[in-house]
Design a protein around this nucleic acid. Structure first.
Lengths: 112, 112
DNA sequence: TTTATATACATAGATAGATTATGTATATAA
DNA sequence: TTATATACATAATCTATCTATGTATATAAA
């Protein structure tokens, strides 16, 4: 059962940046499949969300691109820029804090 | 210091329902203060977000209201309806799944 | 042979949950 | 008298995401 995508609002940039921090370079379609695989189909990353997000991250100077033709189809590869490498660190910390606060608010914090 | 409120999009209803599931009845201002206290000021719940959310939950039949005058000021108390009590269970499970998926996607080990 | 599915990119328009700003009103501390 | 806290509410705006649509190639199924 796919969970409410609405909840992932605001986390997409962090997810993209994190995937690129551990994969060197990825193209859009690959990212959608990777997310689908990791979440076992629970989160389906839509093109209408992904591509505008990638374009924005590139416009902000966090991603760099290069295109390749594979099997007569164009692939646009994305990789982290220097700024992107810095950004992913702060974005991950922000996500950690968010999860902690949400667990506090919902009494989901596991007892230690 | 305060973390990006953007991340909490979609979680507000769950937060409200959960607070009411453990407090019997609460009024709006009380909810904002409770959230502020629990998160130690990290999450500031704005009136522009809270009141429309409360009205929507009431319109959806998940909350019931009663007003009281305290110190010459009107308080509108909210409490869970029967439907609300059911809803909070599924909403909490949804939030748990969301956190799990997000931790998977960001390589954040759940703290045990 | 036609159709459906997978791969691969992109964007326009609509949606919805938030933010910002503003409004009313009372009580109390500076 | 001024600022802050309490207590409600809504209008206008923002923006990230979704839905829908478009182009194009390769391949498997009907």
């Amino acid at each position: 059962m796919a969970i409410n995508n609405e909840l992932f609002k605001g986390t997409l940039q962090t997810i993209i940046l994190n995937l690129l921090s551990e994969n060197e370079r990825m193209y859009g379609y690959e990212i959608t499949q990777k997310v689908k695989f990791i979440t076992q189909g629970e989160l389906l990353l839509k093109e209408g969300a992904l591509y505008p997000a990638l374009h924005k991250l590139e416009a902000d100077g966090l991603l760099e691109t290069s295109t390749e033709v594979v099997d007569n189809r164009v692939r646009k590869y994305y990789s982290l820029s220097k700024d992107g490498e810095k950004k992913v660190v702060s974005k991950l910390q922000e996500a950690k804090d968010f999860i902690t606060q949400l667990q506090l608010l919902l009494n989901l914090k596991p007892n230690i």
